[in-house]
Design a binder for these strands. Structure first.
Lengths: 157, 157
DNA sequence: AACCTTATCGCAACTCGTTGCAGTTGCGTC
DNA sequence: GACGCAACTGCAACGAGTTGCGATAAGGTT
């Protein structure tokens, strides 16, 4: 979600955001922004391409991917990596969080700032390293899979 | 490195390992194992394909990737994800470690068990979640990039 | 040594993304 | 309102990785 109000409220703002960054406001970008705005949670590049195509069949993958890059540079979008390492995009003004994936059952959870505190702090102290929480993906086995000993089923990490 | 002694020492062991898992010992796998054995650190799938091809030009990508899967199932190989999310394979009996990547300058470091302790412990306690250290990739900004304020150059995360 | 089961191989086709390049067009300026 | 620069688009070709399928060949049996 880009909005804090309604799409028609915020889009002009975004446009300004773009212009002041020396970027241009094009129909294609407008469409992509609109689709992102209607999206909850995360989207993969290809999902975004599909959704855009369902509105404008002329949508090109290269344009979508390049736009995502641009949006990320401007700070309107961020990406993390799913279980398979594929990029998953989410729109900024959502609360910053990381992801916890169970490599066995495939479930996933959000990691809030609170929960990540220990991790962030550890790296900051030891190395002066500033961990990017929204980019953090932790993989392992969840409680129930650990309990269930054998691997329940075939989710790939 | 698969070896603890020389390749010719350990390969027969691996073969047994395979057979007892109902897997077959083929020339292609033998080649892949050999190349892995001669490799230090990490390899990407495509790098492995290239190296195998330089020995046997007939090497097929699908075979290599499928073999990597098989090796991972058996536990002889593990993978983590690089800055771009691409899989990077490393051979097991190396010390288990995660990876720390600076999204700005692109440098990366290993995260030892000691350094990861706080993180692992936090998730274990809070969720009974068993973090897979060798699969852990932490991204952010390193000390010098944080100090240097502006983004030095264009490494992509 | 011939035989049989089935794991593995190689191919071809496909998905997800990226990139170089030439043509287009947003948009600030005159 | 026309002009011009450079950002952006779309195409086409490519790189990485996956998958379905028929053909091949390990390796245990007889």
């Amino acid at each position: 979600m880009l909005r804090s109000g309604s799409p028609t409220d915020t889009l002009p703002d975004v446009r300004e955001h773009f212009r002041s960054a020396g970027m241009r406001w094009t129909p294609q970008r407008r469409l992509i922004l609109q689709v992102l705005d209607e999206t909850d949670g995360h989207v993969t590049g290809s999902e975004l391409v599909d959704r855009c195509r369902s509105i404008d069949p002329g949508t090109t993958p290269s344009t979508v991917y390049r736009t995502l890059r641009a949006l990320e540079d401007v700070g309107l979008v961020r990406h993390a990596h799913g279980l398979d390492g594929r990029e998953e995009f989410h729109v900024r003004p959502g609360n910053e969080h990381g992801h916890l994936h169970c490599g066995d059952c495939g479930s996933s959870w959000e990691i809030g700032p609170d929960e990540a505190a220990a991790t962030i702090e550890a790296f900051r102290r030891a190395r002066g390293f500033d961990v990017d929480l929204s980019h953090l993906t932790v993989v392992g086995r969840c409680r129930s899979c650990v309990a269930g000993a054998a691997k329940p089923s075939g989710a790939r990490s």
